[in-house]
């Protein structure tokens, strides 16, 4: 087994809280420099240190490229605000538009890069155990974990159904009406067969005392270290200070 590095070893809840704090801060401070010059490079650096850079970068890249391109196209060019910097045909790049595009993409970028790093380096079951320890009901943990397992499983089943329907002669290519008609015979057998299975699944879970109200024991044992408990507080404090600095003129704020 590969030895887990720093970020992957961190307590899941700590990572999640830090990621959400950073995201929240980027919404409040509304400054693109925070995202582009600080958080995004930092997240890439952490991913490199954690040895997860390749798969992490692929995911970030896939999520960001088209999205950011569109936002820039629309915000910077098509919603004119203020003086024009550059123009080509009907496209006008304006100061206000560029600023807005940078701000929106920076905020989204912070959320994307931090959350993707958390999920890239965290085992979902660990995250659920750490949430259950803070008082989340086990039903909620079940819903999350079962959904994550159910999606690929039902996906496989939907492909089987689609092939069966194709063999029977249903067309999946052609005009929109033909394609829409192919949607129902694929999805409805999937839904109905899954629902009729629910009874068996309920019996299985109940045989393992699923709805018992006695406190659970965990197969996975997780503890937040001293460092992990206090780094959350530290990050929240830093973000609060930054927000104050941004908005309170007395200590050098910008507004």
């Amino acid at each position: 087994m590969v030895k887990k590095r720093f970020i992957s070893r961190m307590y899941p809840l700590t990572k999640l809280i830090i990621a959400l704090t950073l995201g929240g801060t980027s919404i409040i401070v509304h400054q693109w420099q925070f995202g582009y010059l600080f958080i995004m490079p930092l997240m890439f650096l952490l991913a490199i240190l954690d040895g997860k850079f390749k798969s992490y970068f692929k995911k970030v890249f896939a999520a960001i490229v088209v999205f950011f391109l569109f936002i820039f196209l629309i915000q910077a060019f098509l919603v004119p605000v203020g003086a024009t910097i550059w123009q080509w045909e009907f496209l006008h790049l304006t100061v206000g538009g560029l600023d807005k595009a940078l701000n929106i993409t920076a905020t989204i970028g912070v959320f994307l890069t931090t959350l993707l790093l958390v999920f890239e380096t965290t085992n979902m079951s660990d995250l659920m155990v750490s949430l259950q320890k803070t008082g989340m009901p086990n039903g909620a943990a079940y819903v999350f974990l079962a959904s994550i397992q159910m999606i690929p499983e039902m996906n496989k089943r939907s492909k089987v159904i689609m092939q069966a329907q194709r063999a029977r002669g249903i067309e999946t290519e052609g005009n929109m009406w033909v394609r829409t008609k192919a949607f129902f015979p694929t999805l409805s057998p999937l839904i109905i067969s899954s629902i009729t299975d629910i009874g068996d699944k309920a019996a299985t879970l109940e045989a393992r005392a699923f709805s018992s109200s006695i406190p659970n024991t965990f197969y996975r044992d997780l503890h937040a270290s001293f460092f992990e408990k206090y780094i959350t507080v530290f990050v929240i404090l830093l973000c609060t200070l930054y927000t104050l600095w941004r908005y309170v003129p007395a200590i050098g704020g910008l507004l």
Binding site: G139, Y142, V143, I151, S158, R179, I198, A202
Partner: peptide
């Protein structure tokens, strides 16, 4: 509680299917 994960999978697969069929 068992229905919810199935429903979530149906949501996701419905979305995927819609994009496979280019609807």
């Amino acid at each position: 509680l068992i229905l919810i994960p199935i429903a979530i999978a149906v949501n996701v697969i419905g979305g995927q299917l819609a994009s496979i069929l280019k609807l």
